[in-house]
Design a binder for these strands. Structure first.
Lengths: 192, 192
DNA sequence: ACAGCCATGTAACTCGTTACATGATTAC
DNA sequence: GTAATCATGTAACGAGTTACATGGCTGT
């Protein structure tokens, strides 16, 4: 029967955010994604959030309800029973693809023979700042997750800690790279 | 002036592969990508290699030449002078985007409250095998890179070693995750 | 003879982005 | 009042994939 996928991975990711049980506007869902998904799974653009929500609603996996808020109405979304079933099925049965990585800095290093070494070091430094910032952001998110081992955020904490590991490793790999680059510059630098 | 990009990042990545100086068919270029780019920058599909080559040639960054090989002709490609300039400029002046990551396993963990813990552990194990395999593949590539510190492969070796760091860290992060999941299963497992 | 690799593409589609457009509400 | 944030979309495009189609060459 293998009916074709009801949603894309990003669609399921958003459905997953709704599976925590809150009723959210598209805007809020985007904020949620930016403080969770973002660290391990490229958060979708605002416009995609809306279009995915439409698709999910079309497939009956999400319920949207127009709600009066003062003068205007906003649309809040929640996962449907069918959505929960579909999500569970997807999580249990679909293949887990290997991580997709596009490491732009690594590409720059790889093509280092076409770049000034000083420029390369700058770019490594830039990446380092970004990585530190991300680590700080993630640490804040992690602190915001209460430590009740029985609640529904237990897995979120695991992923957050995994992410802290991940970005710390990234940071030290970056540092090793930088010292190696620096060493090469001394050894093989401009012939004086 | 900021003339619009002459190529996409993937286009430049392929151009970069040609910057090592070999004359390659599209097919060979794809193989090269699969043994280098692949470890840090999603290697393009065969069909995309051909279409990017066309675009690069259209922009004058690559020269293609039909070459007789026995009965038939194949098309070999090399980087042009203009291509070298464009690549150097791109490497030096374009912004280095942060790494793009879609970690499908992390998403599965994050949504762990919707999955059987046993299933989750299986998926972690699957990821672990993939990671080990990738590490093995990369180690072989690394061995194939001669250790002359002055040659054009010096940076390739740096990236390879960076990659070994990266995948080893991924592996241990995975193991920490697995033991934590196992611990949770014991503590909070099925109420007997 | 047959399998598997070398070699080159086309067509259709999906996923996702940026830029644009609009307007209400809230904080200062 | 005015800037930031909340809120919702549309349109055009770009990047990348899978599936399909073709055929020569190489080793057994």
């Amino acid at each position: 029967m293998a009916r074709s996928q009801q949603a894309t991975p990003t669609g399921y990711a958003l459905l997953g955010l709704l599976s925590f049980g809150r009723r959210l506007t598209g805007y809020e869902l985007k904020q949620f994604a930016d403080s969770s998904l973002r660290f391990f799974y490229n958060a979708p653009a605002m416009s995609q959030v809306y279009s995915e929500l439409e698709k999910l609603e079309g497939a009956g996996l999400v319920k949207g309800r127009d709600t009066a808020v003062g003068e205007r109405t906003i649309r809040v979304h929640s996962i449907s029973r069918k959505g929960i079933t579909a999500l569970r099925r997807w999580l249990a049965h679909s293949a887990v693809d290997p991580p997709l990585l596009k490491h732009h800095l690594a590409l720059r290093i790889f093509l280092g023979h076409m770049t000034e070494p000083e420029r390369l070091l700058e770019q490594v430094a830039g990446q380092r700042s970004w990585c530190e910032q991300t680590l700080t952001d993630l640490a804040i998110v992690r602190e915001g997750l209460e430590d009740d081992p029985a609640d529904q955020w237990a897995h979120a904490r695991m992923v957050a800690d995994w992410g802290l590991d991940y970005y710390r490793a990234e940071l030290s790999a970056l540092d090793r790279l930088a010292s190696r680059l620096a060493a090469t510059m001394e050894t093989c630098g401009r012939p004086q």
